Computed example of a mutant assay.
Amino acid sequence: SFVDCKKNEVYIWLAIDRKSRKIVGCFVGDRTRKSARKLWASLPEIYQQRAFAYTDFWQAYKTVIPPKRHKAVAKETGLTNHIERLNNTFRQRVSRLVRESLSFSKKLNNHIGAVWYFIHGYNTELDRI
């Protein structure tokens, strides 16, 4: 998505628990290794120590996630289906994330706030199920 103008691209980095489908880690930033590190740092320690991360082949993941905790996979494997579905849900429910939208954030803090507002509501919704 964009903040203020189309030159300011912003990416939402997400990590989910595949069993509960809860969002367990998030970082809003650019598409660099530094942002991948911040996503990894946002995960609770138990996930960093024991969870297994399935990602696409983006190079930043390979350099940040420890090799014994990481496996890059193609979409055809089905191992990234949950996160792809969540990305679609984000675009459906948070209007400022839709391409060609009239809704957009003028300030990064407002953009991050809208993302976190959605995440807390989404995780709370899963608690009720």
Rank of each mutant, 00 (worst) to 15 (best):
S1D: 07
S1M: 08
F2P: 07
F2D: 13
F2I: 14
D4I: 10
D4H: 12
D4P: 07
K6G: 15
N8C: 10
E9G: 13
V10G: 09
Y11F: 04
I12G: 08
W13G: 01
L14Y: 02
L14T: 03
L14P: 02
A15F: 02
A15E: 04
I16A: 03
I16L: 06
D17V: 02
D17H: 02
S20K: 07
I23L: 00
V24Q: 01
G25F: 01
C26L: 00
F27S: 04
F27D: 05
V28L: 04
V28F: 04
G29V: 05
D30C: 09
R31D: 04
T32W: 00
R33L: 09
R33M: 10
R33D: 08
S35L: 01
A36S: 08
R37A: 09
K38G: 04
K38P: 03
L39A: 03
W40Q: 03
S42P: 09
S42T: 09
L43F: 06
L43Q: 07
L43S: 05
E45C: 08
E45P: 08
Q48T: 08
Q49Y: 05
A51I: 11
A51H: 09
F52D: 09
F52C: 11
A53K: 09
A53T: 09
A53Y: 11
W58L: 14
Q59C: 12
Q59L: 10
Y61P: 08
Y61G: 10
T63E: 13
T63L: 10
V64T: 07
V64E: 06
P66F: 08
P66V: 07
P67A: 15
K68V: 13
R69F: 08
R69G: 14
K71S: 13
E76P: 04
E76T: 09
T77Y: 06
G78D: 05
G78V: 05
L79F: 10
L79R: 12
T80H: 07
T80C: 06
N81R: 03
N81S: 07
H82L: 10
H82N: 12
I83N: 03
E84A: 00
R85E: 08
Q92F: 03
R93F: 00
R93L: 00
V94H: 00
S95E: 07
S95G: 08
R96H: 00
R99D: 02
S101T: 09
L102F: 13
S103D: 14
S103W: 12
F104A: 06
S105G: 06
K106I: 11
N109E: 15
N109V: 14
N109G: 12
N110R: 12
I112E: 13
I112S: 11
G113N: 15
V115Q: 01
V115I: 13
W116P: 07
Y117I: 12
Y117W: 13
Y117A: 15
F118A: 01
F118E: 00
H120E: 15
H120C: 12
Y122P: 02
N123K: 05
T124W: 10
T124K: 13
E125G: 11
E125H: 14
E125C: 13
L126A: 04
R128W: 11
